[in-house]
Simulated assay, not measured.
Amino acid sequence: MPNPWDLPDELPTDPPLTRCELPDGRVVSAVQEAEAHTLWEEISSAAPYRRAAEGLRPDEAVIDVGAHIGLASLLFAQLAPDSRLIAFEPAPKAYTCLDENLARHLPGATASRQALGAAPGKSELIYRPYVASASTLYDNAEDDARNLEVHLDNVDANEQTREVVRRTFNVTQRVPVEVTTLTAVMAEHGVDRVGLLKIDVERGELDVLDGIDPARWPGIRRVLLEVHDIEGRLGQVVSRLAGLGFQATICQWGVYVGGSVHLVLAERD
């Protein structure tokens, strides 16, 4: 990590895309190389991610909402190669990487530059070019600061690293994005059965669930969500899924212990 005092006074808001090599030798397009390596390590080693893709059937789709550059999609396709995969990412540069990565490694998959929410329309994305995975439609500076500091504490970051991370995290752009619903997505793509619905949308998880018509829920077998537990949201999500017949398992990655971010895997037969 560079010395923070070596950073320019004004960080570029449009840094160039890059490429990086995953541990298995696959080369992927990335917004930031360090972020891609960190995310792949987290995702590929997380038991809920692997459990979520186990035993998926060829007639079941995988829908990746908040796909970023497609790392979770790559893992799911590796574990369930016969399932159809549809991935959504509204951030323009992250979407460019997603589209390239799916075309390169999963040519049968579909990438879409849309956000998913409770109703179709337009919204504004707060895009973080140095931490694109933290881009969001749902601004909450207090929650962001809490999770950032917890993460830095849990990795025992030194003061120079903390300063670099804070500065880069606070570089943002506001980008208009199109919003659709999961109900509309399933209709558009002719999907009746979803073996795995993965949602990682930085505080927008309830809105994504609100965009699923009751008639569509019987066709969804597993849901993997990142939930920010703000104002009881974790309990709301688990209760809603339980009411739909799902059994939920909740955990936290070690770097988020003490923060609001939880991982929920909800399953049913």
Rank of each mutant, 00 (worst) to 15 (best):
Q173E: 14
Q252V: 03
V223F: 05
R146L: 15
L209E: 02
D153S: 07
L85K: 04
P107F: 13
P8Y: 04
D213E: 15
A46Y: 11
V150I: 11
R128W: 11
R162T: 05
H68Y: 00
R216T: 14
L79P: 00
G121M: 08
V164W: 02
S73T: 02
E42W: 00
G219Q: 10
R268P: 14
E267P: 01
L7V: 06
A266T: 02
L196K: 00
D153E: 05
G117D: 12
S133C: 08
A248Q: 02
D269K: 08
D139S: 12
E149C: 05
R174V: 10
A30Q: 04
D192V: 05
G204N: 05
V201P: 00
H151E: 07
G66K: 00
M1T: 14
E100G: 06
L56W: 02
P8G: 13
R167P: 02
P129K: 06
V191F: 06
T183K: 08
F169G: 00
P107K: 10
V27P: 10
Y130P: 05
L137Q: 03
V255G: 09
D269S: 11
A87K: 01
C97A: 03
K198R: 11
E178D: 15
G25Y: 03
W217P: 14
V261F: 03
R166E: 12
A47L: 14
L116R: 06
G232Y: 15
E54Y: 04
E159G: 07
G259A: 09
E226T: 08
V194F: 07
D24G: 14
Y138Q: 11
P16G: 01
Q78E: 14
D82R: 15
V155E: 15
P12E: 09
W5C: 14
Y49R: 07
D143F: 07
P129N: 05
L265A: 05
E205W: 02
E205N: 05
L11T: 03
W5P: 14
A103C: 03
D213R: 13
A47D: 15
Q252T: 10
E205S: 06
R268G: 12
A266S: 06
V191S: 03
S112T: 04
E89Q: 04
E10V: 13
V185Q: 03
K122R: 15
L85F: 00
V28R: 08
T136K: 14
V131I: 07
N158M: 01
V238P: 01
L85C: 09
E149N: 13
V177G: 00
D144I: 08
E267K: 08
P16L: 10
D200R: 00
T96I: 01
I86N: 01
